[in-house]
Simulated scan of single mutants.
Amino acid sequence: MAMNEYLIADPAERKERAEDKERWTLEFLRDEIYSTTAILAREMAVGDRAARNVLNRMAKRGLLVKDEVKFMEGRALPLWGITSSGVLEGLTPEEVETVNLRSHRVGGVSPTTIAHTLDVQRCRQHCEIDLDFEDWTPTRLLPAQEKKKNHPDRWSVYPDGVVMQPVKDERLVPVAIEVERSRKTPQRYIQIIRGHIRNIEAKRYFRVYYFCQTKNAAASLQALFLRLMKEKDIGYWVENSEESEKLSPEQSVKLFVFRGMEDF
């Protein structure tokens, strides 16, 4: 855990550390729009109490807004959302030309989607902080996401995010991230599997990481994918020098990596 800036003796270093935490928070929320204290605390590399001090300070300056999502049983989850001022804070003119201008709307978070959204944010942090992946792109910022469903530029399926993974030769390659909180029907999974394979064949990304609530759930989903791919003879087409070759379901399922979320 990083040291609180108030314990740093040098005023210049203390100021720089405080500015770093605000910058990291704004960078994260420009993509995610809103989040919780705990998630933003990890983004700042501090504890929850120190994070609340930073977040309250930013809210007083109009960079963030406090909000909450209320559930039917009466409990409420506090949230922090980025404002229009926060979106533009500290950006260069060149960055202003391309930054996504969406800000948080108080009261606009649905209780039915919040758990999945926060799990995606936790997976993003796991990828970027623990695995050293880079350049996360959330679903809503992926290419042609705003186009109509029959538009030729739309992807076959949209994952929860795409992030750049380091590989052995020091290159970065795009991989898709999916967070699976509950099971879908077999028919829906068949559509999703085929959609991901079409995206991989189009080189939009090279692998799909599925994060489930537990390792057991991840192993079960992997077994289901393999069964469905065998039953429907779903395979990945590889372009060789002379002709295309369809890989077997057993080979093609290796394009999907299944992980549990217990450890993070």
Rank of each mutant, 00 (worst) to 15 (best):
A2I: 02
A2E: 14
Y6H: 09
L7P: 03
I8L: 08
A9D: 14
P11I: 05
P11C: 12
K15N: 12
K15H: 13
E16K: 14
E19I: 02
E22V: 03
R23F: 06
W24P: 01
T25C: 07
L29F: 02
R30D: 01
D31E: 10
I33A: 02
Y34T: 05
S35R: 03
S35K: 01
T37G: 09
A38R: 13
I39V: 12
E43L: 09
E43T: 15
E43N: 12
A45Y: 12
G47Q: 01
D48E: 10
A50F: 01
A50E: 06
N53G: 03
N56A: 08
L63T: 02
D67S: 15
E68G: 09
V69K: 12
K70D: 03
K70E: 13
F71H: 13
M72W: 04
E73R: 13
L77S: 06
P78C: 07
G81H: 08
S84R: 04
G86D: 02
G86I: 00
L88P: 00
E89S: 10
T92M: 13
P93T: 10
E94Y: 09
V96Y: 00
V99N: 06
L101W: 00
L101T: 10
S103A: 14
V106Q: 14
G107T: 10
G108V: 10
V109S: 05
P111T: 03
T117N: 07
T117A: 15
T117K: 09
L118H: 02
Q121W: 04
Q125H: 15
D132T: 07
D132I: 01
E134Q: 13
T137F: 04
L141R: 09
E146W: 00
K149F: 11
H151P: 11
R154M: 09
P159W: 07
V163D: 09
Q165N: 07
K168P: 01
E170W: 00
L172Y: 11
P174T: 08
E178T: 10
V179M: 03
V179S: 13
R181N: 15
Q187Y: 14
Q187R: 15
Y189P: 02
I190D: 07
I200W: 04
E201K: 10
E201P: 12
K203H: 11
Y205T: 06
F206H: 14
Y209T: 08
Y209P: 02
Y209Q: 08
C212N: 10
A217R: 06
A219F: 01
S220N: 13
R227T: 01
L228A: 07
I234S: 05
W237V: 04
W237N: 00
V238E: 15
E242D: 13
E242T: 10
K246M: 06
K246R: 12
K246T: 02
S252Y: 05
K254T: 14
K254D: 11
L255Q: 09
M261E: 07
